[in-house]
Design a protein around this nucleic acid. Structure first.
Lengths: 241, 241
DNA sequence: TGCATGAATTGATATATATCAATAATGGAA
DNA sequence: TTCCATTATTGATATATATCAATTCATGCA
């Protein structure tokens, strides 16, 4: 679980990581930055590689950095009392992770963990603060990003508190296909326990619902790869609760 | 449930409402505004009164306005399928309500309803946008407010998904006493149904837990007024789940 | 190649919570 | 006041989901 730094300060990685990373995402919040500002952002940032399973940032530690996921898949989880966890959402390539204590108490309110191998950048929070005060468009983009992420999270949690298990599993499967992987047979790389933790239910219960869906011909499952055969059925189950 | 506008554009209310409203809250996000900027904010804003029970803003309608609660108590609720609702939090005097679609899709993602009589101000979202681009300190304050509100909401929902009913009721009672009313015997003005909707449980179940707490001498209840007699016990129950 | 360790699956059972139904209490209107 | 319509309360029962225990399956490792 220990994080290893492969490249400390990446001087030459700018062209193959930083600027590119901030270029190709057409809806990147960094698009509005000037060359100077990008330079500032990039200057002291560190490029770090994590292996699958490693903890990128731990809940309740200081939130002095913002993380930018360049490659790979990570999960965001809230750790409760005992060993209860709730996986709030997944984070795919080219996502920036704000929120969670940034601007407030400088404390991480959730843990970020690598699902697959993850390449990411750590950016000093101070840089973000400075850019907010320099560039109002950037502040605007950040507010937008923040609100969007939070609305998604909220809708998700409302679903979890209001729906029965089949509805929650449907929502999860649709989320994975449409929001995260965007292909149809998709390999989640997530254990049954992790999938269960995304729906706030027991692993056993999750497996049972999955089996029902398989028997009903709605999905087919092969290890961690899921194939949605009847998306309409999932939509229906999702709506019915 | 129809909203009535008592005062359309309040010219002379500036001194008894707007500037004061934005003055006395020592941690108001409007503190950082210049006189000019405050003037801009206040110019076309409307001061509206709602009776208890009225809907201030309805989920899924256009979010072209930001609401500022000057006096009274309101509740924020997410409406799900059927008649399921989840009350996310309460809003007391001198709170500004951002988030929920602002900056993104301009659609309200939750309903706001008056619990007691409520005096509030409607401010055009455009004004907020303009102030964000003019005054970076304001943008910063907005980000802060946003993040704080969202973290509270998140912690709350994580508790709801991970705790048993007694733990959830404890959390609710502590929240009401410490965050909302800040006195000890406090009159919630909320029905049992509404209290239950804050904990994502049935009214009947909520009443049963409340009774257990009464019998255990932890609280005493008189109508909608609750008196917490043993706060430590509540803390303990909250932690145990 | 086989063993060992953990993950996935299935079944039997327990329990937290919801549902349904009946009764009591409360508060407003005539 | 008295009546009516909500709201609150209590009890009996149903059910969704968790828990516990037992297999099966996969996978790396010696």
């Amino acid at each position: 679980m220990e994080s290893r730094k492969l490249e400390e300060v990446c001087d030459k990685c700018k062209e193959n990581c930083c600027s590119r990373c901030f270029d190709d995402g057409e809806d990147s919040i960094f698009n509005c930055l000037t060359t100077d500002e990008l330079e500032l952002l990039v200057k002291e940032k560190r490029h770090i590689h994590f292996k699958a399973g490693e903890t990128i940032l731990k809940q309740n530690t200081s939130a002095s950095h913002v993380v930018c996921v360049k490659r790979g898949l990570a999960k965001i989880l809230a750790e409760g009392n005992g060993d209860k966890k709730l996986i709030l959402r997944l984070v795919a390539s080219h996502s920036i992770l704000t929120g969670g204590g940034l601007f407030i108490d400088e404390i991480r309110h959730f843990t970020i963990q690598a699902v697959t191998a993850v390449d990411c950048c750590f950016i000093d929070s101070d840089k973000i603060y400075e850019l907010v005060s320099r560039n109002s468009q950037f502040a605007f983009e950040l507010l937008k990003l923040n609100n969007r992420q939070n609305m998604e999270m909220l809708n998700n949690l409302v679903g979890i508190t209001q729906k029965y298990m089949p509805g929650r599993v449907s929502d999860l499967l649709l989320y994975l296909k449409n929001k995260i992987f965007q292909t149809n047979p998709f390999d989640t790389r997530l254990s049954r326990q992790e999938l269960a933790d995304m729906t706030s239910m027991t692993m056993e219960s999750f497996i049972r619902i999955l089996k029902e869906f398989k028997l009903a011909g709605i999905i087919s499952v092969e290890g961690t790869t899921i194939h949605i055969l009847d998306e309409e059925a999932l939509n229906l189950i999702s709506r019915k609760g």
